[in-house]
Design a protein around this nucleic acid. Structure first.
Length: 639
RNA sequence: GCCAGCAUAGCUCAGUUGGCCAGAGCAGCUGAUUUGUAAUCAGCGGGUCGGGGGUUCGAAUCCCUCUGCUGGCUCCA
């Protein structure tokens, strides 16, 4: 007998060789039906694999991330089986589960697989799934594995085998399909009820640009048809909120082929929104001791040689521009920090001035590969909400707290309430990869960890993810659709102060090197606004939205009254417009709704006589009529 | 940059196997209507079918090439 302990702490005895599925059955048939895999001593196993020693066992179902991943991984095998049936001789790369589904990289030879082929692949998968084939695990000697794939002519699997040792090779088989696979898998293909292939694209074998490009087919599967339907609805909703679509509809920004790809232009409403966002951030920064600076859009190549950016990124940047006579070389500024370092160095600094916090909405230009450009989220010219804090090593923690406070304040104001952070620390096994003293690193890493724990921020720690010049903290937020986005970062930097030989005179009358902290709560205005658009679906917070109200006269006869309302509200800093078209009120309401204007003031004969407005609120409808003063009060209560 | 796909009016899309002056809805303009909580009616204008080259008696449609966009890969100070 062996002892099995469960997550709730319960311990029960079973015969050796019992499987997770047996255990599930002993608890209830219903549970057994839902079990996809099991975590045995922290490792995910096939539900049917015999357990021969004492172990902790957690049964995994669709509701567990690991259960989902197993389900999708098994679905990848099912797709591979279907592909082999439809494309004889197709060669297989790898087929893992990923966030939101699975993919398989395949080499179809001289055939191509496009979205048009999805239907027939899905149908084949459904047909195979209905055969209720079990996934059988088998340990295979390396020699046998090699000869199997040699005969099959699958060079990719053979290459994968090269990296594996004899004794750790397993095959999984369902139906007629055998694959080299570590597993685990779900018990049977019959669990896979709903199948949808999502997209197809190229992917280099083993992610190596110099290797052959395989066809990557993405798919997603579910145990219930209904879940697939919901999943597709979520994707539809995301499509509706796509910032590129809304940006055009709401006239926030545009792109032009003639201006160049990846170079957004802000239309009046978008510029207004962005300006408002910047002003808000500016005022919050001023409260926290930041000072604004401005620096030019280009900088001498020497500046970036000093900073090290030229050496590291120069080859992949926009080419330098030259002065016509002297041939001096300038770069479009890819970073603001070198300029800010020069500002720090304008005169000798005393420890009494530290921390020095200098901020700039600095527009930078980076050559991003053309295939990477995407709406506002990935562009070639963008504006960072940048600031650099120069401080003493002792002040790092205090400054982190200051930045965390700023960031959480600002993001909450924007309607984001779910944020987490990743703390990136040194790789303890490779200390030589990093610049700066051990003492400073220890100090900064401790400061970050302490600061984040003091503000009650949910964090994950990633060892070895730090930059070579210092540890960092990255903010992640979840949007209204539950998607995660990485926003701004806070990075400690020991490198630039060195390179620019920055100093301050300490109380000991000796020069010391300051620590530099880079931070950008939004990351970039462009990217942040793209996330904000999708988070809100274009329904921005009232204080931020371009037009806060629209006055809709019932007929032309009340246009003057409507203009009067608008003027009076403008005096109260409430902004909006009058829709004075000769349209019916229903039409005006519809058009105003589509523009995502939060408040509508409908005025007709009754209102003009009584000096009132009839208020209609986004998402709520008619909220009744009120005097203008009452409306101003109502408006303020919504802010 | 690489792979795959796409490009027809300001927007969303039709356009049969290449074949008369390339269509619709919305938007725009003009006029009528003067309207009470999500689309009033009529008329008009608007496209070298992304650019260039080729095949053909004939190209939006087939081929090549460039540009841009979409999805993926790689990269991201």
């Amino acid at each position: 007998m062996i002892k099995i302990s469960f997550p709730d702490g319960r311990v029960q005895e079973y015969e050796s060789g019992v499987s997770a599925m047996d255990i599930a059955k002993s608890i209830s048939e219903g549970l057994a039906r839902n079990v996809l895999a099991a975590k045995v001593n922290g490792e995910v196993w096939d539900a049917g694999r015999p357990i021969t020693e004492d172990a902790t066992v957690q049964l995994l179902t669709w509701n567990d991330e690991d259960g989902k991943a197993t389900f999708w991984h098994s679905s990848a095998h099912l797709m591979a089986e279907a592909l082999e049936a439809l494309y004889p001789g197709i060669k297989l790369g790898i087929g893992p589960a990923v966030e939101g589904g699975f993919y398989y990289d395949v080499d179809p030879g001289d055939r191509t697989i496009s979205t048009e082929d999805f239907k027939k692949i899905e149908d084949k998968m459904t047909e195979l799934a209905r055969q209720k084939n079990t996934y059988e695990r088998r340990e295979v000697p390396k020699a046998e594995a090699i000869s199997y794939f040699k005969e099959k002519g699958d060079e990719y699997k053979l290459e994968l085998l090269e990296g594996l040792n004899d004794g750790e090779i397993t095959f999984y088989q369902q139906g007629n399909f055998v694959d080299l696979c570590r597993g685990p898998h779900i018990p049977s293909t019959e669990k896979i009820k709903a199948i949808k292939l999502m997209k197809v694209g190229g992917a280099y074998w083993r992610g190596d640009e110099s290797r052959k490009q395989l066809t990557r087919i993405y798919g997603v599967t579910f145990p219930k048809q209904k879940e697939l339907t919901e999943h597709l609805e979520l994707i539809e909703e995301a499509k509706k909120r796509d910032h590129r679509k809304l940006g055009a509809e709401l006239e926030l920004f545009m792109f032009s082929e003639r201006v160049g790809q990846g170079l957004p232009m802000w239309l009046p409403k978008g510029a207004q929104l962005r300006d408002r966002l910047q002003n808000y951030l500016k005022s919050e920064q001023e409260k926290r001791g930041y000072e604004m600076v401005m620096t030019p859009h280009i900088g001498h190549k020497h500046l970036y040689e000093t900073s090290g950016h030229w050496e590291k990124y120069g080859e992949d940047s926009f080419r330098p521009i030259k002065t016509p006579r002297e041939g001096e070389e300038f770069l479009l500024k890819p970073m603001n920090c070198p300029h800010h370092c020069e500002i720090y160095g304008v005169r000798p600094r005393s420890y009494k001035e530290l921390p020095l916090r200098i901020a700039e909405f600095g527009t930078v230009y980076r050559y991003e590969q053309s295939g990477e450009l995407h709406g506002l989220s990935r562009v070639r010219g963008f504006t960072q909400d940048d600031a650099h804090i120069f401080c003493t090593p002792d002040q790092v923690k205090e400054e982190f707290l200051n930045v965390l406070d700023l960031t959480t304040t600002v993001l909450s104001k924007m309607g984001f309430d779910k944020f987490t952070a990743q703390i990136s620390l040194r790789d303890p096994d490779n200390p030589e990869k990093y610049i700066g003293t051990d003492e400073n690193w220890d100090n900064a890493e401790r400061a970050i960890i302490e600061a984040t724990s003091e503000v009650d921020l949910e964090t994950v720690t990633a060892l070895g993810e730090a930059a070579f010049y210092g540890p960092k903290l990255d903010f992640m937020i979840k949007d209204a659709l539950g998607r995660s986005w990485q926003l701004g970062t806070i990075q400690v930097d020991y490198n630039l102060p060195d390179r620019f030989e920055l100093e301050y005179i300490g109380p000991d009358n000796q020069p010391h090197r300051p620590v530099m902290i880079h931070r950008a709560p939004f990351g970039s205005m462009e990217r942040f606004i793209s996330i904000l658009i999708e988070h809100t679906g274009g329904k921005f917070p009232l204080w931020l939205t371009p037009d806060q109200f629209a006055v809709l006269p019932i007929s032309d006869r009340f246009n003057d009254y409507a203009d009067d309302i608008k003027r009076k509200l403008a005096l109260k800093d409430i902004r909006g417009f009058v829709d004075d078209r000769s349209e019916k009120i229903g039409r005006k309401i519809r058009d105003t709704e589509l523009k995502r204007v939060p408040l509508m003031l409908i005025v007709g004969e009754k209102e003009a006589e009584e000096g009132t407005v009839s208020v209609r609120k986004q998402g709520e409808g008619d909220v009744g009529s009120m005097s203008l003063d009452e409306f101003v009060e109502y408006f303020e209560s919504l802010l």
